[in-house]
């Protein structure tokens, strides 16, 4: 049955070459922990992606309750945390996942660096990877404000002060992020938009480029 559906679609859209491109690639011995246990360091990138997927899914569920508004933001998070069935777990996954994705990404960066995998012809993929690093730090920074509790608010005050101290673009960057003179309703709305639309958009685009380049170039050879 499934095969028939597949064939029906394949006849019309010729998806087999596409599927083979995605699924068909080799896993060399030197990156396979089944053959060399030390090769587990090659898992960090995949685990980073795994946690990113967890973040996207749990984040989607969080927005079912979250209200980006200074009066209701805190109340909605409090309600989700204390009243909603399994809300504690969904919020917990997003909270701890944010830390975990940074840890995994850090380890992945170190692995790529110390195996010299960024060298020709993989320079561009390294650059895209570092941009991904920045995007994820940005997601961490903007997401921290959203619960609108004490530590969220005052960490953002400090963060925006730091942004403002940058020469030339400082004032502009601060206004862009805070949406005005005071850190308040406008800031929360902007951080929400950045956290939920702008940065995830950039993240998905960069991830696509990251994976495309890996597939095109293959994984770097053994040292």
């Amino acid at each position: 049955m499934l095969q028939k559906v597949y064939d029906w679609v394949d006849e019309r859209l010729d998806i087999t070459p596409l599927w083979r491109d995605i699924a068909d690639h080799e896993v060399p011995e030197h990156v396979n922990p089944a053959h060399h246990f030390s090769a587990f360091v090659y898992c960090f990138g995949g685990l980073t992606f795994f946690v990113v997927v967890i973040q996207i899914l749990s984040g989607m569920f969080l927005t079912m309750y979250y209200v980006p508004d200074i009066i209701h933001a805190y109340e909605s998070v409090y309600y989700l945390q204390n009243e909603v069935t399994h809300g504690l777990i969904v919020r917990g996954m997003h909270h701890w996942g944010a830390s975990l994705v940074i840890v995994m990404m850090f380890l992945h960066t170190l692995r790529v660096f110390f195996t010299g995998s960024y060298k020709k012809p993989r320079e561009l993929n390294w650059v895209v990877g570092v941009l991904l690093f920045f995007v994820i730090l940005g997601l961490g920074f903007t997401g921290y404000l959203l619960p609108w509790d004490m530590k969220a608010y005052f960490a953002t005050v400090v963060g925006l002060e730091i942004a403002e101290s940058a020469p030339v673009i400082g004032g502009f960057a601060r206004t862009l992020l805070a949406g005005g003179e005071i850190i308040g309703a406008q800031t929360l709305a902007r951080f929400f938009a950045i956290h939920v639309f702008f940065l995830p958009g950039a993240l998905l685009g960069l991830l696509g480029a990251h994976f495309f380049m890996i597939r095109k170039q293959g994984i770097s050879g053994p040292l």
Binding site: I54, I70, Y74, E75, V77, Y78, Q81, L88, I89, R91, G92, M93, H94, H95, W96, G97, L100, P147, W148, D149, M150, K151, A152, Y153, F154
Partner: peptide, 16 residues
């Protein structure tokens, strides 16, 4: 990961 999540709920302070 889930064990961590259940054992340590995400912190929430009072409203800003």
């Amino acid at each position: 990961f889930l064990v961590l999540t259940v054992a340590h709920p995400a912190p929430l302070e009072r409203i800003a």
